[in-house]
């Protein structure tokens, strides 16, 4: 279901467990070790090559029981580091992030000074990784609003430093700004509409 002004983003959902079984070996059920992480990331990147950019990619961890630091680094951190590398960029959202995934994900994001939007409970999205309080506050505001028309963006930016925070969030692909209309879209809203 889309509405006027929705960006034309290609979107795909990647079930990491199923990708792990298909691309590495169907004997492996846990996301551990660097070579395994590398194989899973390459499989995700290969899927993304088929999409027009900008694209939205939902990386689903809900079936992953064990995620170690090496694998989190190979899959999540490296995907994010390359998110600008695909033409108009890829916007990643993690789905199914459970309590036992938090430590590895948070550690690798902080190590690389990265952040990602993550669905940590049904319809509950949060910003994981590094970022200033101002950026988090602005992201949360946009997350609550879902969609802000270009003409109304100024209202969000009344606090000191907010313009800079917005630029950082856009640059880090933590929200989407329509390239022509200038509207702002929370990634969670785009996910609900596209995937």
């Amino acid at each position: 279901m889309s509405r006027p002004g929705d960006p034309q983003l290609d979107a795909c959902a990647v079930d990491v467990r199923s990708l792990l079984e298909r691309s590495v070996a169907n004997l492996y059920s846990h996301l551990v070790t660097r070579p395994t992480g590398r194989a899973v990331r390459l499989a995700i990147e290969s899927q993304l090559e088929e999409f027009r950019t900008p694209a939205l990619s939902l990386v689903d961890l809900s079936s992953v029981a064990i995620l170690d630091y090496s694998c989190a680094d190979e899959v999540i951190a490296k995907l994010l580091l390359r998110s600008s590398g695909w033409g108009g960029g890829v916007f990643f959202v993690l789905r199914g992030v459970q309590e036992h995934h938090r430590d590895p994900i948070q550690a690798v994001l902080e190590r690389h000074d990265l952040a990602v939007v993550a669905e940590t409970a049904s319809d509950h999205f949060e910003l994981m990784g590094s970022g200033s309080d101002g950026e988090r506050k602005l992201w949360l505001r946009l997350e609550q609003l879902g969609w802000v028309k270009a003409s109304e963006v100024g209202r969000l930016l009344e606090e000191a430093g907010a313009q800079k925070h917005l630029e950082v969030l856009i640059e880090r692909h933590l929200l989407f700004q329509h390239p022509l209309q200038g509207d702002l879209h929370a990634l969670s809203t785009l996910i609900q509409r596209r995937v």
């Binding site: 846990h30 551990v32 070790t33 660097r34 029981a65 064990i66 170690d68 630091y69 090496s70 590895p104």
Partner: peptide, 13 residues
Amino acid sequence: VVQFSVILSEVCQ
């Protein structure tokens, strides 16, 4: 059990 498995994985790697 998950944290322990992660420790083992990292230490073996």
